[in-house]
Design a protein around this nucleic acid. Structure first.
Length: 163
DNA sequence: GCCAACGTTGGC
DNA sequence: GCCAACGTTGGC
């Protein structure tokens, strides 16, 4: 299993919005590096759900991948701001996955708190200039984060290897 | 292929 | 609102 961090602006789509639906297409990603990470996602992979452009920004919950990469519909939609005229159904440029909520963090973890955790110092999110909306993280980083966030059971399951 | 200009992200 | 960092575009 792999672990990821995905960003969303809560004013647009926050973790509570994810909890309100069975699954949500993670589309509109228009950065090649982020797209390539989307394509590496596998069913069952777990994601930290990060609120960007928020007050405060931080990790709000845990989500999981429920459908692996498929062509992002929005690239063909002339009405969408995410349309890409250079993309064709025969050769789609952009991908989406579907994600579903697993659990909210009982303790929301603000970015400022994450920065103080030594075990998380290498997380891509915390690197200078990091702007990717989808990034890989290690299992250790995921476990440390969800434990800090109050999901002790999930942390324990993953450490026991039966996650 | 270089690089300046521009747009976007996202914390503060 | 500001601005640093980064990606993309397009002229040459």
């Amino acid at each position: 299993m792999n672990f990821w961090l995905i960003k969303s602006e809560p004013a647009v789509f926050g973790f509570s919005d994810l909890q309100a639906v069975a699954a949500e297409p993670w589309n509109g990603v228009r950065n090649y590096q982020a797209r390539n990470f989307l394509r590496q996602m596998r069913r069952g992979d777990l994601c930290l759900f990060y609120h960007s452009n928020a007050k405060p920004p931080g990790v709000a919950g845990v989500a999981k991948v429920v459908r692996e990469a498929y062509p992002d519909d929005l690239q063909f939609d002339p009405q969408s701001p995410y349309v890409d005229p250079a993309s064709t159904p025969q050769n789609p440029r952009w991908s989406a996955v579907d994600v579903a909520a697993v659990a909210p963090l009982p303790n929301f973890l603000p970015l400022a708190v994450l920065r103080e955790v030594a075990e998380l110092a290498a997380m891509p999110l915390l690197q200078k200039g990091s702007r990717l909306s989808v990034m890989p993280i290690s299992q250790a980083q995921f476990v440390v984060t969800v434990r800090l966030g109050g999901l002790d059971d999930l942390a324990q399951q993953l450490e026991a290897g039966c996650g």
